[in-house]
């Protein structure tokens, strides 16, 4: 009779399909006659599946926990009031001296402001971007359809997670050479470029994601595209994207609203 160690080894070889044909047939006959052994094989099979999935499952569980934490943290925050561009305002009577005083004040402020406005615009845009830009997380579970794409993208994400953005860009670009229709590399090239303060390089990458249309990153790409435009002081393009995001609500709705307010100040 087999020792337990021998029994385990036989099960391992059976599950790995490494028994000879004769051994396999004999073992399968045993399984039909011996329910205890059949149960052990079932336990081993489930054990293998569970352990092989342990790392990705754990990553997903953490990603879900983070999403839950973010959601419940937001729920306890007071709601942001969305300004309505076309909202009707209640008219009220304002004394004429108010307007005179306001005009004088405004002229003084404008006069003083003119000395500074050219120097401060660029800086404040960059500050605005820096205050709103956080590098988008790499997918918790990365899977790729193509056999040859996965190793390149995995290497790209390793570099990305280690903040080696130039190296990550190289690998994302290599991955695009394999399959130029991919959305993920373009989205993350945009991220890397923004992280490297290269808004000019980030914009075309994000634009490709938006133009592709049918993918999971369109909304996110619009937000980062808006940040890129702000960085380059192209406020009109940025505002148009932000208005869209603000009206749609969704994951960037509130931030887009706040950003619009800051841009208009």
């Amino acid at each position: 009779m087999d020792t337990k160690e021998e029994q385990y080894e036989r099960i391992e070889r059976y599950l790995a399909n490494s028994l000879s044909t004769d051994e396999q047939q004999a073992f399968e006959r045993t399984l039909q006659q011996d329910p205890v052994m059949a149960h052990e094989v079932l336990i081993h099979r489930h054990l293998y599946e569970a352990i092989r999935n342990e790392v990705p499952d754990n990553l997903m569980a953490r990603a879900l926990q983070k999403a839950a934490n973010d959601y419940f943290a937001d729920e306890s925050q007071p709601e942001v009031v969305v300004p309505q561009a076309t909202a009707s305002k209640k008219s009220r009577h304002v004394p004429s001296w108010y307007w005179m005083a306001a005009s004088v004040g405004l002229a003084l402020v404008m006069g003083a402001g003119l000395f500074y406005v050219n120097n401060t615009t660029t800086v404040s845009n960059q500050e605005l971007v820096a205050g709103n830009f956080t590098v988008y997380e790499a997918p918790a579970v990365f899977r790729s359809g193509g056999k040859d794409e996965a190793p390149i993208l995995k290497t790209a994400f390793v570099a990305y997670n280690q903040k080696e953005y130039r190296k990550a860009i190289d690998f994302f670009q290599k991955s695009l050479l394999e399959n130029p229709r991919q959305v993920v590399p373009n989205f993350y090239i945009g991220q890397c470029k923004l992280a490297l303060h290269d808004a000019k390089g980030a914009i075309p990458a994000f634009q490709k994601v938006v133009d592709h249309g049918d993918n999971a990153y369109v909304v996110q790409a619009k937000w980062y595209l808006a940040l890129g435009y702000i960085d380059l002081n192209q406020k009109e393009q940025a505002s148009s994207l932000l208005r869209e995001l603000s009206q749609q609500g969704g994951p960037y709705g509130e931030r887009a609203t706040r950003m619009l307010n800051e841009l208009s100040n």
């Binding site: 997903m60 879900l64 983070k66 999403a67 839950a68 973010d70 959601y71 918790a140 579970v141 999971a216």
Partner: peptide, 20 residues
């Protein structure tokens, strides 16, 4: 499909959107 893809990849924004 967007939500299913969000789950497949563990995308932070889409997971939060599922909660929302």
């Amino acid at each position: 499909t967007l939500f299913i893809n969000g789950l497949r990849t563990g995308d932070a924004v889409l997971l939060k959107e599922i909660y929302s």
